[in-house]
Amino acid sequence: MTTQDSQAAAPRGSFLDRHYFLLRRLHSLTGIVPIGVFLVVHLLTNSSILWGGVAERHHAGGGMTDAGVAYFVREVRWINEQVPHLLLIETTLWVSILFHSVLGVYYATTGRSNTDRYRYQGNWRYRLQRISGYVGVAFILYHVGTLRWGWTFLVPGGTEWSYPFAASTLAAALRGSMDGITVGGVAVSLFYFAAVGLLVFHFANGLWTAAITWGLTVSVSAQKRWGYACAVLGAGLLAMGWGSVIGYVMLDPKRARVVEMSLDPGHQTGAAEKASLEGRREAGVARESEGM
């Protein structure tokens, strides 16, 4: 297949137009690598509050919940302290998410949903893909903003997340306080529940359409088969995602705090981190003495 390159029109128009194909395909690719891969890892880590209990059952005497907390917190500490090139990974991820969101929102504005007239399942998926994209952008900002960038004014109860106390501070942020579930906490938890569901859909459906975009699944039957595979993957991720949200909402932050305090920081972390943990403890970030 040879092209008469000389005949091809000279590149014209904006940067976006000249690199249209590349940008479109990068948009598709970034949704899978790194964003989709990160989503899978992230949900795996988070859901360890559920399945971690099974893995840790021999080490913790306090039952499955405590063991799950221990597993999850160890894992989060490991990510924050021992994963190499964490800054590089995070930067790549952020650049990809920014790129995928900005282009995605722009592309989404070029369509006009017509599910009122054409109520086909595929048409609903098309529409949901765009809605979940918008909600996803808002959720990611809220999620990372409140838990990593310290936007505590958006957290009912104002809990600040810190990784050595990953489980207790997360549970408190979702529940609205260290003590019990508040109205604000219910709102945050419902937002998490909905957004996690939509993002998982966005990934599974995106994976399905990407195979058409790139031309991997051409025949209708191939598209169907890949569709089932994506649905199974999506259902698995949904179980992990929703399971995690429910798991943290049900978790008693104070009890989790006890488990976190009991973990020997020196076992997993270096002396410096241990010192900083001690510092936090003394500074009263962990108000473990209250009401235990």
Partner: peptide, 16 residues
């Protein structure tokens, strides 16, 4: 280019 095959959003109404 712009308006080409990449602009398809895979709603698959067309085939229906």
């Amino acid at each position: 280019g712009p308006g080409g095959v990449n602009d398809c959003g895979n709603a698959q109404n067309c085939v229906k």
